[in-house]
Design a protein around this nucleic acid. Structure first.
Lengths: 193, 193
DNA sequence: TTCATGTATGTTAGTGTTCACTAACTTTGT
DNA sequence: ACAAAGTTAGTGAACACTAACATACATGAA
């Protein structure tokens, strides 16, 4: 499933609309306006509105998986790796805020099974990379073994997600990377032996 | 702003629809069906669909504020109080899952400013009660003072929210109270001196 | 070089469906 | 008699999507 350049433009415009004004704002009319063409033209590139969202989520999951795998390779030390993973996430969403919707949509959308599945896949990808790093850190003794790895992963993920939510709710009015580094740093400090 | 019994029935039915099938499922037609009357009858009780949601959020925020204040009174010990606060939250949402939407809606809805404001108020209420307990715990030396109280509150809140999200995504298929107690307990353990 | 043909990407002008909401009337209980 | 709470039968607006047609450009044979 490769994405053509024109399709990517449409996906990014769709993400912008959702991130700016919520899901209800993603209509074929508004999306076509933002692309500076007519509604009908959308259907030359995607067969439905749902396909636009599903393709976006697929693209995002693949991108994130690859990016986090690269970060993991570059940082053998688990403690440092977790920090680098989240910094990479913050940098990505700072550069591409149109994809923020994919973090929050879960739990409230359910417009279609395909969309739900796409969103869940993104969570699974992140969870997998984080859990690997934490387990490794527990083996090396860097992180506490007083609690199961998935409990620690849950606490870190929850901290991250709430931070992103507050960033978005504030209109992205603060430095998500700086404040995020402090928050994740504090959480990491708490689970460090 | 007092809520009549019939209004409360409508509010709960609306919450059910959203929690079961997402925001798009809350239509006047489906809501009227669930109430076993016609769409027009809805407008005898609320002047608009938005008013239904805003009233629900207002009701929920007031209820939560009162409940958490009572828990705080009953538990002078900060450590124990935080545990009791979240247990009260878990018990509430287990009994009234139709209000789950209010936890997740933020960040993705924005159908109207009134709804957004209502959702934010609920977060603020919870945050205030939690922050009080944590600050007190830091003063008494029960909790670590290595990190600011609002950082610790953020980590606990994030842990709670992700837990509720996973409960909802799973179709409420596990014991939210039991698993929640373990998670919050682990987080509390991490911030305990 | 010329020109036919194919493909990609647009356009106009609609379709039927669903939406939130309303006017006018009816029933029921006090 | 009156008010509260329901009904029927609609409204216009917005929705996702489509059929038919138009244009631009690349390829390659005459």
């Amino acid at each position: 499933m490769d994405i053509k350049p024109r399709q990517l433009e449409i996906i990014e415009a769709a993400g912008q609309l959702v991130t700016e004004d919520g899901f209800a704002a993603l209509t074929t009319k508004r999306l076509a306006e933002r692309m500076h063409f007519t509604e009908a033209a959308l259907y030359r590139h995607f067969k439905s509105k749902e396909e636009i969202l599903v393709t976006m989520l697929h693209h995002l999951a693949a991108n994130m998986d690859e990016r986090l795998a690269r970060v993991a390779e570059e940082h053998p030390d688990p403690m440092e790796r977790v920090g680098a993973m989240f910094d990479s996430q913050f940098a990505f969403f700072q550069k591409h805020p149109q994809y923020l919707m994919a973090i929050f949509a879960t739990g409230m959308l359910e417009a279609s099974h395909g969309i739900d599945a796409g969103i869940e896949r993104i969570m699974v990808v992140k969870r997998r990379h984080l859990l690997n790093a934490i387990k490794e850190g527990q083996r090396s003794g860097a992180f506490t073994s007083d609690h199961p790895a998935d409990t620690l992963a849950h606490i870190i993920m929850g901290t991250f997600r709430l931070h992103m939510l507050q960033w978005r709710m504030s209109g992205r009015s603060f430095d998500v990377r700086k404040k995020g580094k402090a928050l994740i740093g504090a959480a990491l400090d708490l689970i460090t032996n």
